[in-house]
Design a protein around this nucleic acid. Structure first.
Length: 832
RNA sequence: GCGAGAGUGGCGGAAUGGUAGACGCGUCGGACUUAGGAUCCGGUGCCUGCGGGCGUAGGGGUUCGAGUCCCCUCUCUCGCACCA
């Protein structure tokens, strides 16, 4: 038999699989149970890289596993193909963004094809296809009609490098998520999705995901939404008609308020500073605040700054006059942009009070030293003091009582606040989904009628150079339009949508990619959703996953989908790194996927990634051995070649007595059981280890039988083991498994592919063991080992253990206090 | 600063509270070879007087028994970063 050439196997089997059309999902009348396995679709940045290979290998194992189990598996692929890199490449090279994008898609698609992923290619689409973004626009308009899409003027995150605004979720540590440039603020009118309306549901429905999503992702989302409960309290301002409401989580500390702060960059601050002789000082301060970068502002140990506005607020509980300051440690866009300051019990307020020499009054006695002296605010529980009728209450009771009393008097009420902000979705770039709104001087914002969708991107006449205004503004013929309402001259909205809008519903489109009566066929969505297993990088822990959850809930409310959570289970695979750090051009530590594939073959690379460790851990390519993986795969093929085509199929799990070495059969069936468990637990590294053990066991069996009788045909148990090995391997290393299958006498080209062979079933009788090694301890230390029947009695085991020479030697004449017996595996003799 | 998670051989990593180190890499020895960076077989946590002793970041605790559970300390990683 020829040695194993993985590249020849790839060339041999890929066309066979394609002609068998193995991975098509949802054929009419297919009654098998359905299962949706999804990988986060790629952005077409160039060719596939090591990270893609890992992520998609993991997803492919899961998809193939359920296919072998007899499920009708939907495992689709497409491209998240709108986005900035296409535009930047276009500006640099003078090619159209579409050309760059679709060329890269073709490259990646071909790489995926050769990588042998079990995709249903018939469902492929790209978010930049007009047939797709037509429905993105349609969904935007449904959101708009429901009041969930709106425009407002507000200070927004601005990336000076990409020349566009960014959503809060796209600012990481004060920098642009995409290009790492420092983000600044700008006052602009932009489109938003009202995701804050769904904050509570996004929080509550996480209960459904508990246990099947990584804990840390749920925690990150919880923190991002940042729900906090407390009260809104109205403070009258001297000389102002309307009171100013503040939000506080500590209404119990109301008597400890000694000053009042409004966000310097809020309209309220400007208003309160007017007149009164404090105007100039405030204006100077505001200038200074505006010049402070977000990065500087974020340093929480920065000294507190602010200016007195010459005004006073009235504490509603005791009528005290509180001086009003403008400061930048209060944020304009959280709560009401104004706070009551309680320096004794809030560190930030205390820092400010010490800087401005304001009084500090303890109202909750926590037993800790005076904050005015120590400079450390006390935030724990305690008994109320200096709080009038509330003195003596503990924190929780005081919060309840004071909130109730405020509510009764009309001066406040219980309230909830969120850290989450509405999703800023408009972008001042070209290569994205146009916003289907027309601005009419007479009618205002007018939705483009459904039957005029899609609003297509103009292919010519656009100046792509980023200048801070939407490039589409330069497409004059495109922008000029007539109002769908009154027919008069009007202008198209020239912003495009955040690409995260495109990816917030693509998993629904896969269910019916060619549907023309809506974004998706509700019947198809009902069949497939939710996604049973979603795989992708943890970088989307908040962004894509939060947005998709939001979209699903809105669509649920519209009656279009029947689930409120799109992804039942989530796996965040780790990154592939090199020599301890992320691969990058500048570090010169990039590993080229195509070069690795050319050297070791597809399956060796897949096995290397799967065997390196649990899928959520990073893989340091310097620590792993593709050569070792290739060696094992070659051993598997050699083994099946040695077993050969003779003897006819001996399918595991089929009825009837099986001949052959019982020890080999036990190993085979225990491997089936172990690999099944490990694959379902996504412990592919352990599954591979078990298959390596089976390989070695079968090898030993073959060599032993040859030594005994050179002419003897392969033991049927060895044949059974080899077939099982190929079938189990089919989900991990599809080419090698097919090659092994063929060498065992099957003819994939005639339809007898290992990928149709099904998952073997372990025979419980063979998985069960009849004898086990019992560990005998003296004082908790292992002193002897006994081979005992699995059903040995406790009494019998105790007698045997005590009779052990090693036990007696270690007892050294001491009396036995107790004997702990955990039959059949352990006895612990405890000396007095 | 706050929150979360993790520390196991030379390395990647296995271990329902019950044999620590499965499997692999590396390494050492052997076989086969003109040769081998191919292939195959075997050893490989550390120490040892060969009885055994010590070992899962460090220290304490619970338990007959702890890598696993609890407390403290150290280190690393990730998330948030003035959110009232």
């Amino acid at each position: 038999m020829s040695p194993y050439d993985p590249h020849a196997a790839q060339d041999r089997w890929l066309p066979v699989w394609e002609s068998l059309d193995l991975y098509r999902a949802g054929r009419p009348g297919d009654g098998r149970p359905k299962r949706y396995i999804l990988d986060m679709f790629p952005y077409p940045s160039g060719d596939l890289h090591m990270g893609h290979a890992e992520a998609f290998s993991v997803g492919d194992v899961v998809a193939r596993y359920w296919m072998q189990h007899g499920y009708d598996v939907l495992h689709p692929i497409g491209w998240d193909s709108f986005g900035l890199p296409a535009e930047n490449a276009a500006i640099q090279r003078g090619t159209a963004p579409a050309d760059w994008t679709y060329t890269n898609i073709a490259t990646q698609a071909e790489s995926f094809r050769r990588f042998g992923i079990s995709f249903d290619w018939s469902r492929r689409f790209n978010t930049s296809d007009p047939e797709y973004y037509r429905w993105t626009q349609w969904l935007f308009l449904r959101f708009y009609q429901r009041g969930l899409a709106y425009r407002k003027a507000s200070p927004v995150n601005w990336c000076p490098n990409d020349q566009t605004v960014l959503a809060n979720e796209q600012v990481i540590g004060g920098r642009c998520e995409r290009c790492d440039a420092l983000v600044t603020k700008k006052n602009l009118t932009q489109w938003y999705f009202r995701i804050t309306d769904y904050a509570d549901r996004l929080l509550a429905d996480m209960a459904q995901l508990e246990g099947s999503w990584p804990d840390r992702v749920l925690l990150m989302q919880r923190n991002w939404i940042g729900r906090s409960t407390g009260a809104e309290v109205a403070f009258a301002i001297e000389g102002r008609d309307e009171p100013v409401t503040v939000f506080t989580t500590r209404p119990d500390t109301l008597f400890g308020a000694t000053f009042f702060v409004v966000a310097a960059d809020s309209a309220l601050a400007t208003e309160l500073a007017a007149g009164d002789g404090h105007e100039e000082e405030f204006a100077a301060y505001l200038e200074q605040v505006k010049r402070t970068s977000d990065i500087e502002r974020m340093a929480s140990d920065r000294p507190k700054t602010g200016v007195f506005l010459g005004r006073y607020a009235v504490n509603p509980v005791n009528g005290e006059l509180l001086p009003v300051y403008a400061a930048d440690y209060v944020l304009a866009d959280y709560g009401t942009g104004a706070i009551m300051a309680v320096p004794a019990h809030d560190q930030r307020d205390l820092d400010f009070a010490r800087a401005f020499d304001l009084p500090v009054r303890v109202v909750v006695d926590t037993g800790e030293p005076d904050p005015a002296v120590t400079g450390v605010a006390t935030v724990g529980d305690g008994v109320l003091v200096n709080s009038g009728e509330y003195d003596g209450l503990v924190k929780a009771a005081a919060i309840e009582r004071i909130t109730a009393d405020l509510t009764a008097r009309g001066g406040g009420q219980a309230a909830v606040n969120y850290r989450l902000r509405d999703w800023l979705l408009s972008r001042q770039r070209y290569w994205g989904c146009p916003i289907p709104i027309v601005h009419c001087p007479t009618c205002g914002e007018v939705p483009v009628p459904d039957d005029e969708l899609p609003v297509r991107l103009p292919e010519t006449g656009v100046d792509l150079t980023p200048r801070g205004v939407a490039p589409l503004e330069t497409a004059r013929d495109w922008v000029q339009t007539s109002c769908p309402g009154c027919g008069g001259d009007a202008r198209r909205d020239a912003d495009t949508m955040d690409t995260f809008v495109d990816s917030s519903w693509y998993y629904l489109r896969y269910c019916s990619p060619d549907y023309t009566d809506g974004p998706f066929d509700p019947a198809a969505v009902a069949e497939w959703m939710p996604v049973a297993q979603y795989t992708g990088g943890v970088e989307h822990a908040i962004l894509h996953l939060l947005y998709s959850r939001f979209f699903t809930k809105v669509l649920y409310d519209m009656g279009l989908v029947g689930v409120v959570e799109p992804f039942a289970a989530l796996l965040n695979q780790g990154f592939v790194i090199m020599n301890g750090s992320k691969m990058s051009k500048s570090k010169g530590n990039r590993v080229d996927l195509q070069a690795e594939l050319a050297r070791y073959g597809v399956d060796a690379i897949r096995i290397t990634m799967l065997f390196a460790g649990p899928p959520e851990d990073d893989i340091d390519w310097a620590d792993v051995s593709p050569a070792g993986s290739a060696k094992w795969l070659a051993r598997v093929v050699r083994l099946t070649g040695d077993v050969g085509a003779g003897g006819g199929p001996a399918g595991a799990g089929s009825s009837g007595a099986q001949a052959g070495d019982p020890a080999v059969r036990q190993t085979t069936h225990r491997t089936i059981a172990a690999v099944t468990t490990q694959v379902e637990a996504l412990r592919f590294n352990v599954a591979v280890a078990r298959l390596m053990e089976l390989t070695s066991a079968l090898r030993r069996a073959i060599d032993a039988s040859r030594a005994a009788d050179a002419s003897r045909a392969a033991d049927p148990a060895v044949r059974e083991g080899a077939e099982v090995l190929a079938r189990l391997l089919s989900v991990l290393a599809p080419y090698t498994a097919e090659e092994a299958w063929a060498r065992l006498g099957h003819d994939p080209a005639a339809g007898d592919s290992v990928h149709r062979a099904g998952w073997p079933v372990a025979d419980p009788a063979l998985v069960a063991v009849e004898t086990v090694t019992c560990v005998v301890q003296v004082a908790g230390k292992v002193r002897d080992r006994l081979e005992v029947p699995v059903d040995v009695s406790a009494d019998d085991l105790r007698v045997r253990a005590l009779a052990s020479a090693a036990v007696q030697r270690n007892l050294a004449g001491r009396d036995v206090r107790t004997v702990v017996v955990r039959e059949p595996r352990l006895v612990n003799v405890v000396p007095a």
